[in-house]
Amino acid sequence: MLELRDIEAGYGAVRVLHGISLSAAAGEVTCIMGRNGAGKSTLMKAIMGLLPLTAGRITLDGVAIEGLAAHQVPRHGIAYVPQGRRLFAELTVAENLGVGLLVRGGDAALRRHVLDLFPRLEERLDQQARTLSGGEQQMLAIGRALCLGPRVLLLDEPAEGLQPSMITLIRDTVLRLKAEGLAVVLVEQRVEAVLEMADQVVFMANGRVAEIAPARGLAPDAPQFRDHVGI
């Protein structure tokens, strides 16, 4: 289980996150929702160690990971799919997956698992990432992260800018990973998608947790969506 306790972080002197506490359990999807500028992507970066914490504690299965150098965080089993995908654009599909596999010493079974999950990638192994379609790029971004063999997967708006068939594929993939026992933390703005995938929803506002609600208890027109997301 990934647990955040009272974490604070920001950019230089500007503090963006104020005392965030939440937990994400194995085999569950935790959706983070909030308006633009609520701090959702900053939270993802803070968990990955890409932004230094100024306060608070992050543990994964009881092991403290706050204060680790960013390159040490994935070794503890946390993988990150950033907003906008941010693939290594000039590298081929195979090389992007290869970077994901570095931590695991090039685990062939893990690579096979990813290619079984996204067979389209196998057809494009020698193609540069920048030449892929948006949907293929998102498959590669998720596949690259899964090559780390993570226990926790952070996904920052993976459906952004994708066509409906790809959005369905991403949803099915998230549900499959959840069934495989991963803890998935998903930044998502579409209410339908959240209600289909989430076990709990964390609403953020102005860098704070405004409310944490079980997804089962939320209707599509629940006031939380209006109040915290503006939908």
């Binding site: 941010r86 000039e90 970077v99």
Partner: peptide, 22 residues
């Protein structure tokens, strides 16, 4: 592998760190 690490760092150092590259 060293070349791959260098090219990944060249492409996006922040994301390279998120994949375990020092």
């Amino acid at each position: 592998k060293a070349g791959l690490v260098m090219r990944a760092t060249q492409s996006d150092p922040e994301i390279a760190r998120a994949f375990g590259i020092n």
